[in-house]
Amino acid sequence: MSYLHSIFVAPFADMADAPDFFLQVVWEGLVSGVLYALIALGFVLIYKSSRIFNFAQGIMVVFAALTLVGLHENGVPALLAVPLTLLVMFVLAVGIERAVLRPLVNQPDIILFMATIGITLFLIGLGETIFGGANKVMITEQLGIPTGSWVVEPFGGFVSVEQKDVTAVVGAVLLVIALLVFLNKSKMGRAIRALGDDHQAALSVGISLSTIWVLVWFISGIIALATGIVWGARAGVSFALEVIALKALPVLMLGGLESVTGAIVGGLAIGILEKVFEIYWGQPLLGGNTEAWFAYMLALLVLLVRPQGLFGEKIIERV
């Protein structure tokens, strides 16, 4: 009985007792949720336009952040390092399209998936060879991101809000809006969506497959850089980031592989729920560190009810 009480009653009583602490937990979860959503967005863009399940998105985040910090360490001013990093990401996109995607066109999904794991290994090796395996500090101040924190006082308690987290959330929202406008209004954006709908039809009206693929991988690179900056400001730049990027997979599954909305909603939901679960159930009852698996289990439960995810296209199968 007391066990049931500690599962079903005590955590909610704790939440009601200290609403300011609860808000703090939710805010922390929201910030990591934004980052999951950003990584998942990179996945969705590539999946929509080429049906490639891009495992390398996580390492692209690390690689972009490492390039930025590495350039700065070698004397490039911070504001010049950003466009230079974008240039590197563009070269990477062209390189991947030329060397990996073009020869593998029309292969089964799993082969392309494996190829992106190959890209991941290659980029890990390349990054370590050039920049070394040590942890680095993100150049937060040099980029003009405020580092102080505000204290908000709801319900008579207090919630501390870091300014760089606010910057991250605002930046992510702006990035998503820009992306949605680009996808829906511009000619290139419409071409990307056309390619996502039907490869052959898109080809027959003169949309160039290879140009679009380079473009899509480049956009993913931009998103990766943005994610890298925000996450690096919170936790430092290291290859451990790649494991965190794996969290984007349950986010995607939860939201549905083809849906931009799904990536955002899924990211926020998983970010908040896993923090709340960890604080109120994981640490007191299960010995902590439940964040390692909570997202996957949640996605699995949702998929059992909706096999295509919350916002995914309904899977219709014919024989």
Partner: peptide
Amino acid sequence: LRIKGFYLAIATLAAQFFLLWLFQK
């Protein structure tokens, strides 16, 4: 039985991370 393709990968990933956590805790 219900989930297919890449979506199924999530079930095995859940196994991967959950079991690893169990081995530690």
